[in-house]
Write a protein that binds this DNA or RNA. Structure first.
Lengths: 338, 338
DNA sequence: CTGAAAGCGCTAACAG
DNA sequence: CTGTTAGCGCTTTCAG
C-alpha cells in the first residue's frame, strides 16, 4: 500500500498523511482518522521514497578494521545501542585490516548513501585526510584523536604510563617494551610515550634496545617476546601495548620456564577476557570501549543536527586492573566480564 | 549531478546512461563516450533513486544477539566478506540478547528496507515463526536448523559427542554436564544430546543429577560448576556446552584446589581464544564460524537470485582440539588464532 | 490548518 | 540498438 491508496482509505489527502508521519500541523480529527487507518492497515511510509525525496537516509556507516577484535566489537555495540534509540540504521564495513578497502569504503561515501560515518581508526595516511576532508557528511573518528575532526578516543598514553608505573612501583628497574607500529597513533605511538613517561618519572632512561615491535596478535607477541628476552636477558618487567601481545609473551614465558611475575612482571592495555583468565591473570588497563562507541554515536547525531558546529574531541579515562602478572592478588569479582 | 545533467554532458540519452550502468545493449561508441564522461565527472547513479525505482535495496540485514561474542563476530566477518564481493551492503542489528528487540527487528523488515535477512539464531518462539513466515523476503537462519527455512548450522550434537567421548576414551567414567537452556536448540538441546550419545556409546547412563544449566557466561560457569561439584563430588570429567562456561568452571577448580586434568577433565565446544590460553589450555571443539557466515551469505544471495527454490539447510562439521584440560599435550601451533 | 501539484533521480516498457 | 515516456512513493512549497 502506498501513500495515495492509504490517504484514500483514510479519507484524507496525501499531504495530511505525510504530515501525520512527520509531525506537521494537523487537526485532531484528521490525526485520529489517520491513526485508526494506520492501525487497521499497518501502513508505513516507504523508506526508500523518503530517502529519495528528503535526501536523508537515516543510515550511519561504521568502518572498522576487524570485527572479531574484542575492542571493535564492543565499540560497535555501543554505537548500535545509541543509533537504535534514535531510529538510525547501522551499516557496517569490515575492512579486514586492508587499507585499500578502507579507502574504497570512504570513497563509497561520495554516493551519499549514508548520513554520517564513524571510522574506527587504525593508520591514517595522507590519502585518508584528503578523502575525509572532501566528504561533506559528518564524520567521527573513534579510537584516536585526529586534528580537524570530531573524535572519541582513550587516554592511551596515560594508560600505558599507569601500567608501567605500577610495575616500577613494585621495585622493578629493567623494563622492556613490546609495542606495535608507531603508525598507529593510539596503540603505537601514544602507548610508547606513556611507557617512556613512566620510566622518566622513575628516573630511568628509555632504551630503544629494550623495545620490540610486534603485529597485533598473540603469535607476534610470542615471537617478539622471545627475540627481546634473548637479546636483553636481564629484563625484570615487560609492558605490552596490547593484551594479545602480552598473552603471547606469557605463553613464551610459560614454555621457557620464565616465572611470571617472579622473574618477569607483565602488564598491558586492553583488559581482554583472555587476559583475565590467562594462566597468570594479566594486569591490564581497562578502556571503556562500549562507552566510547556510545559517545561517538551521540557526537555524530549532534553533528547531524548541527552540521556546522566546531569539531570536538573527547578523551576517555581508564582503570588499571592489577592482577597476578604483577604480583597482585585480584579479587575474584574482577575477572568476570563487564 | 543527476542522470539528466550527466546524459547531457556526455551527449547521450538518459536511457543510454542507465543501460551503461546496468549492462544493457549499447553501441561501443556510446559506451566509450559515457565511460569518458563518468571518469571526468565522477558521476554515479543515486542509490536511493535506484532503490525506489527497482524496489531492490542491495542491502542485507543481519540480526544477532551479541556482537561481542567471538562466535557472532566471526560469523559476521564471513557474511561481510561475501556481501562485499557481491556489492551488497550489510545492515546490522544487535539485539543485545533482548528477544523483544529481535521481534522488533523482524517487524521492521515489513518496511522492505532490505532485500534479505540473515538471522543469527538464539531461541525461537512461535512468534518468531509467525513473523518469519509472513516475510516475503529471503531469510537464512544461521546457527541452527529451522524447518521450512534455509539454514547454516554446526554439528553441535556431533561436536559435544566428540568432546565427551574424548574424555571417556581416557578412562573417565563419571562425567558431569554443564549446559545452557534447552530452549536454545543448538547450544542447549543438541549439545546435551551429543553428551548423552557419548555416554551411551560408552555404556554409561546419563543422569540428570549430574547436569546443571548455566547462563552463557564465565561467571555462570563458575557458579554452576561449584553447585554441581558440591552436589556430585565424585565427578571425574566435565563437559561444558560453551567455552565461556568451561572457563568459569576452570576458575572454580583453580580457586578450590581441584586439579585439571588430574582430578577433573574439562572439555567444551567453541574453541575460543580465551580457552586456548587459559591457565589450563582448554580442550574444545572448533566450529567453523567464519565459514558458516560465508555460506549463509552465499545461500542468501542464491535465494535472492532464485526466490522460489526449495529451502536448503547445510550442517558444517567440526574439529576436536585436544589440549591440557584433558591431559593432552597441545602442539604450540594449536593455540594461535585462525 | 489544508490540498494540489511539482518534482527527487532513476529504470523499464515501448515504439521505433 | 535507441530515445521517449511514464511513473516508483513520498515531501514540500504554494495558494487557499
Amino acid at each position: 500500500m502506498n501513500i495515495t491508496e492509504f490517504a484514500a482509505y483514510a479519507g484524507v489527502s496525501k499531504a495530511a498523511v505525510s504530515r501525520y508521519f512527520n509531525g506537521g500541523y494537523l487537526s485532531e480529527e484528521k490525526r485520529a482518522r489517520i491513526e485508526a487507518a494506520a492501525a487497521a492497515t499497518g501502513y508505513r511510509p516507504s523508506l526508500q521514497a523518503q530517502m529519495l525525496r528528503t535526501r536523508r537516509t537515516r543510515q550511519v556507516l561504521v568502518i572498522l578494521p576487524k570485527l572479531s577484535s574484542e575492542s571493535c566489537a564492543r565499540m560497535v555495540e555501543g554505537i548500535s545501542a545509541i543509533l537504535e534509540e534514535s531510529g538510525y540504521q547501522l551499516l557496517l564495513i569490515n575492512t579486514a585490516n586492508d587499507s585499500s578497502k578502507e579507502i574504497a569504503a570512504l570513497n563509497l561515501l561520495q554516493q551519499n548513501t549514508v548520513d554520517g560515518v564513524i571510522l574506527i581508526a587504525t593508520i591514517f595516511t595522507p590519502e585518508h585526510r584528503t578523502i575525509l576532508s572532501s566528504l561533506r557528511l559528518p564524520v567521527v573518528i573513534l579510537g584516536q584523536e585526529y586534528p580537524g575532526f570530531c573524535s572519541v578516543s582513550h587516554d592511551d598514553r596515560g594508560a600505558a604510563r599507569a601500567a608501567t608505573a605500577h610495575m616500577l612501583a613494585k621495585g622493578r628497574r629493567r623494563p622492556g617494551f613490546l609495542g606495535v607500529t608507531m603508525k598507529d597513533l593510539a596503540a603505537g605511538l601514544n602507548r610508547r610515550r606513556g611507557f617512556e613517561d613512566a620510566l622518566k618519572e622513575a628516573g630511568l632512561v628509555p632504551s630503544p634496545k629494550r623495545a620490540n615491535i610486534a603485529a597485533f596478535n598473540m603469535e607476534a607477541g610470542y615471537e617478539q617476546a622471545g627475540s627481546l628476552l634473548a637479546r636483553e636477558g636481564d629484563l625484570d618487567c615487560l609492558f605490552c601495548a596490547t593484551d594479545s601481545i602480552a598473552i603471547g609473551a606469557l605463553q613464551y614465558c610459560r614454555s621457557h620456564g620464565i616465572r611470571v611475575p617472579e622473574d618477569l612482571m607483565l602488564a598491558a592495555v586492553g583488559d581482554s577476557e583472555a587476559g583475565r583468565v590467562a594462566y597468570v591473570p594479566l594486569t591490564s588497563v581497562q578502556l571503556h570501549y562500549r562507552m566510547a562507541g556510545r559517545l561517538a554515536a551521540q557526537m555524530l547525531l549532534e553533528r547531524l543536527a548541527q552540521p556546522h558546529a566546531q569539531p570536538q574531541s573527547r578523551v576517555l579515562d581508564f582503570v588499571l586492573r592489577p592482577r597476578a602478572s604483577t604480583g597482585d592478588d585480584a579479587s575474584g569479582e574482577d575477572i568476570w566480564a563487564t
